[in-house]
Amino acid sequence: MSFGALDAWWWPYVFILAAGWLATDSWRFLGVYLGGKMSEDSDILVFVRCVATALVAAVIANLVVFPGGALAGSPLALRIGAAAIGFAAYLAAGKRMIVGIVSAEAVLLAGLYLL
């Protein structure tokens, strides 16, 4: 049963509730319940953070390498280049996100208008 499986107005909302709300707020409620029982440095939480980080990193790499819509027509090298330059600018500016975001967007837009 995918997001587009049923042609009913309520189906996407059920999908978002089950795959979105339940899958996130369960963790938050568990966090309240556990209170101070877990140490943030415990090894199981390191594993949990590693998996979560890798999963989100995989999503963003796929968005850059296989984008849809308006980005789909742009050259792959431009997208990877813009992301790499933005990330380098972020590090060079002492980890200021706003610098990384603005640099990456500037490179992307310059490339889109010039190419």
């Binding site: 849809g68 308006a70 027509g73 990330f87 990384g100």
Partner: peptide, 25 residues
């Protein structure tokens, strides 16, 4: 279209920087 592309590009670049910055180890 180029601005729509830039809009779409905001998500990956946001996470590229915020994931790195929020890493605990």
């Amino acid at each position: 279209p180029p601005l729509a592309a830039a809009l779409f590009f905001l998500t990956p670049i946001y996470f590229l920087t915020s994931l790195w910055g929020s890493a605990r180890e």
